[in-house]
Amino acid sequence: MKSFIEYIVSIFKGVWTLLVGMKVTAKYFFTPWNNVTQQYPENRDTLVMFDRFRGEVIMPHTENNEHLCTGCGICELNCPNGSIEIISKSIITPEGKKKRIIDQHIYHLGMCTLCNLCVKACPTGAIVMGQKFEHAVWDRALLTKVLNQPGSKIAEGVKE
């Protein structure tokens, strides 16, 4: 008889624990302003990423199409998986000296793990992390980018 009463009590206790749990879910059901879901593709215009967010490596250019990259190749050395290739060329300056400058700063976004080592190592701060995160493209080749814009040149006063 005693075990039978315990059995009945356990059923009611069990139902009670379910009701306690249901109270939590009911609370959120009737307070929809507690919802935290972002309507992502619709809120694109207002969506602001954090300023340190690492989306891709970019090379900022000024209005005069100047950048800070000297083509030293330190970013290439620091990259753990070969996402960066530096192709440099030698030119002859107006003073008649030979000088190596950057020809193409090739960046393979498809291989990049966004570890920030290249940006940290860059002595002139020529490359930074961009906040763009929508990188889907139709062709894998489009993920290989040339960071320095065509016709761009190094800004004056950058130490070699």
Binding site: F50, R52, F53, R54, L114, M129
Partner: peptide
């Protein structure tokens, strides 16, 4: 969000 603001990434923080 805290990670993203300080470290720049959400999971692979480095």
């Amino acid at each position: 969000d805290i990670f993203e603001e300080t470290c720049g990434a959400r999971m692979t923080v480095s």
